[in-house]
Simulated scan of single mutants.
Amino acid sequence: MTTLKAQLHNDLTTAIKARDELRSGTLRMTLAAITKEEVSGKTARELSDDEVRKVIAREAKKRREAAEAFEKGGRAEQAAREVAEGELLAEYLPAPLGDDDLDALVADAVAEAKANGAEGPRAMGAVMKLVTPKVAGRAEGGRVSAAVKRALAEG
């Protein structure tokens, strides 16, 4: 079984051979971010596939934010490249959760938190603790917390 990092390396080699500048550049930056993560801290280590996904998600988020900034600055060409890089990175991430799926996971977490004695707006932390691992990499934190706030306000 190939690790996600090995898959990125293989895809980089293919992109270089195909002279796909966008893909090779994006994968190089992503692999550099993964390597940086591996050597940060006291000892160098190999990242698990989940940790690699987190790095890819972080890189994809940076691309979305940069695209918005370029768009606001009237630099459509750079914005388009950032969007393309973000879409390329999304191929390596699990499919994002739809609103209904996210709401269902949040509702389960709210029910579990209530069963453990946490209710109302003060339950936010407890619910987030329960729901975050279930949505890891499939929904942005802001979207998750908004869904949790809605669910707590209704309940």
Rank of each mutant, 00 (worst) to 15 (best):
D50Y: 04
V131P: 01
R19F: 08
T43Q: 15
E21C: 05
T14D: 13
G73S: 11
K61H: 12
D20K: 02
K36L: 15
L88R: 10
R122F: 05
K54Q: 15
G142M: 04
N116L: 15
K149Q: 11
P133S: 04
A115N: 10
A115L: 15
V148I: 13
R81N: 08
K42W: 11
G41V: 10
A113V: 02
E51T: 04
A18N: 13
I56A: 06
V106A: 07
R23E: 15
A107Q: 08
E140L: 05
E85D: 09
K134D: 02
L22Q: 12
L47S: 07
E71F: 11
L8A: 08
R58S: 14
D101F: 05
V83M: 05
A109S: 14
V144H: 00
D99L: 10
A104F: 00
Q7C: 07
P96L: 09
M128F: 10
T132A: 07
L31G: 07
L105D: 00
D11M: 09
A15W: 06
L102G: 00
Q78Y: 12
S48C: 08
Q78H: 15
L105S: 01
A15F: 08
K42E: 07
V83I: 15
Q78L: 14
V106N: 01
G74H: 03
T132N: 13
T2Y: 04
P121E: 13
T30P: 10
S40K: 13
E85S: 13
E91F: 11
D11T: 12
A32P: 01
E51G: 02
K134V: 06
G25Y: 00
M1L: 05
E37M: 11
T43G: 05
P94Y: 09
G73C: 09
E71R: 07
D103I: 01
G41Q: 12
V135D: 02
M128L: 15
A95V: 12
D108E: 14
Y92N: 11
G41M: 11
R143Q: 06
K129I: 06
K114W: 04
E21Y: 12
A109K: 00
A76K: 04
K54N: 14
E112S: 10
A109P: 07
E21R: 14
K149W: 02
E91I: 08
A146Q: 04
G120C: 09
E37A: 15
R23T: 13
T26L: 09
T43E: 15
